[in-house]
């Protein structure tokens, strides 16, 4: 395999793994639900996106054609992440989960 492609694949894999891990650390250690929402919706989505990209490059460099399935999964994840974050935030607001001390402003009631 082309050594340049190898470097790119290894870099993307490590970047994706690091972002996935950072998203999970954020989920585990941030203080309240609304702050925890930030980690998974972005860091994890981006991490999985990077891993998918490395998979696409890997199979392309091996000469097995360009992977469309990976691209479809990535697009799907990027489209659904904000939707599930939004609907979870609405549910949390409805239940009235506690917010951390020092949060400015309040979730509204309708």
């Amino acid at each position: 395999m082309n050594p340049f492609a190898e470097y790119v694949i290894a870099f993307l894999l490590l970047l994706g793994g690091a972002f996935t891990l950072i998203g999970a650390i954020g989920l585990a250690r941030l203080p309240d639900f609304f702050t925890r929402l930030h980690g998974p919706t972005k860091a994890t989505t981006l991490g999985v996106g990077a891993i998918m990209l490395s998979s696409v490059i890997y199979f392309t460099a091996r000469g097995e054609g360009i992977g469309i399935s990976e691209v479809l999964i990535t697009v799907f994840l990027f489209m659904t992440a904000p939707v599930s974050a939004n609907i979870l935030a609405k549910a949390a607001m409805h239940i009235g989960v506690n917010t951390m001390e020092g949060t400015e402003g309040k979730p509204w009631e309708q």
Binding site: G16, T20, G23, A24, L27, F33, R36, L37, G39, P40, T44, T45, G47, V48, I51, I73, L77, S84, L88, A91, A92, I95, V97, N98
Partner: peptide, 19 residues
């Protein structure tokens, strides 16, 4: 501690499973 936290954890868990 709340139900939305658990749903969020499950949501992240399935994305990690995909990875």
């Amino acid at each position: 501690p709340d139900a939305p936290d658990r749903v969020l954890a499950l949501d992240t868990l399935y994305i990690n499973a995909i990875a």
